[in-house]
């Protein structure tokens, strides 16, 4: 099977590990070869995290630099933080939400008279566009609320990602994997999030 590499990136606590589980489980249910290199380790929230999802005939749990077909970024800055993994012209599906870390806030507060600014999503786009023009940016936070559960940002982005050319998993396979892996009482919101993400990307 032709390989398809997806790098998932985000901030601890956003449900990135669950998203990697859903993708892996979906592949397994279709008998597609898959390997996921996950970043566990520290349990704390709010740090930068990533997971390498590798489908098809590949071996190692890490995507080589410049080889990811897609980056799914659950947070704006995290789309850029792992940019070395994206192949030339690869797809970025990203949340337009930015979560400013304490390290960005600290110097602004310390030197308040300098009126330093936070980084903006446009500055991030500018950098990303130097690598690819295939960028799908969604306000996943808002769309997750629309789906009925703010914690479904991950599935909104998955919905958008699934509309992309060459994405190896069909809608039914993803739906079944979501049903198997999310808490039962959140299935409805998650499926709605998948649909909303898909629709949004097709606009």
């Amino acid at each position: 099977m032709k390989s398809y590499n997806i790098l998932l990136t985000g901030v601890g606590g956003q449900g990135l590990m669950l998203l990697s589980q859903i993708l892996g489980d979906a592949c397994t249910s279709k008998d597609y070869p898959v390997v996921v290199g996950a970043q566990h380790g520290l349990a704390q929230r709010s740090g930068s995290i990533s997971a390498h999802v590798r489908m098809g005939d590949v071996y190692s749990p890490l995507i080589p630099y410049g080889s990811a077909d897609m980056i799914i970024a659950m947070e704006g800055m995290e789309a850029l933080r792992y940019i070395e993994y994206l192949k030339e012209g690869g797809v970025i599906v990203m949340n337009s939400r930015i979560m400013h870390p304490p390290l960005e806030t600290a110097p602004i507060v310390k030197n308040r008279q300098e009126k330093k600014e936070y980084i903006t999503i446009d500055q991030i786009f500018q950098q990303l566009k130097k690598v690819t023009n295939k960028i799908i940016s969604l306000d996943a936070n808002l769309l997750a609320l629309e789906a009925g559960n703010p914690r479904t940002e991950n599935i909104v982005l998955l919905g958008a990602a699934s509309t992309q050319k060459d994405f190896p998993l069909d809608s039914e396979t993803l739906t079944n994997a979501i049903k198997r892996n999310v808490p039962e009482k959140t299935i409805e919101a998650n499926l709605k999030a998948l649909e909303i993400g898909r629709r949004q990307a097709e606009i």
Binding site: L42, R45, G47, S67, L80, R81, P101
Partner: peptide, 29 residues
Amino acid sequence: KINYKEILKRSEELKKVIPKRFPVFCAGC
């Protein structure tokens, strides 16, 4: 096929605009 060193160099350059996001104490810790 792919010049990794070049990619890493370019990426480091591109990433200069974003602040570090180290592990931190969770909200409410």
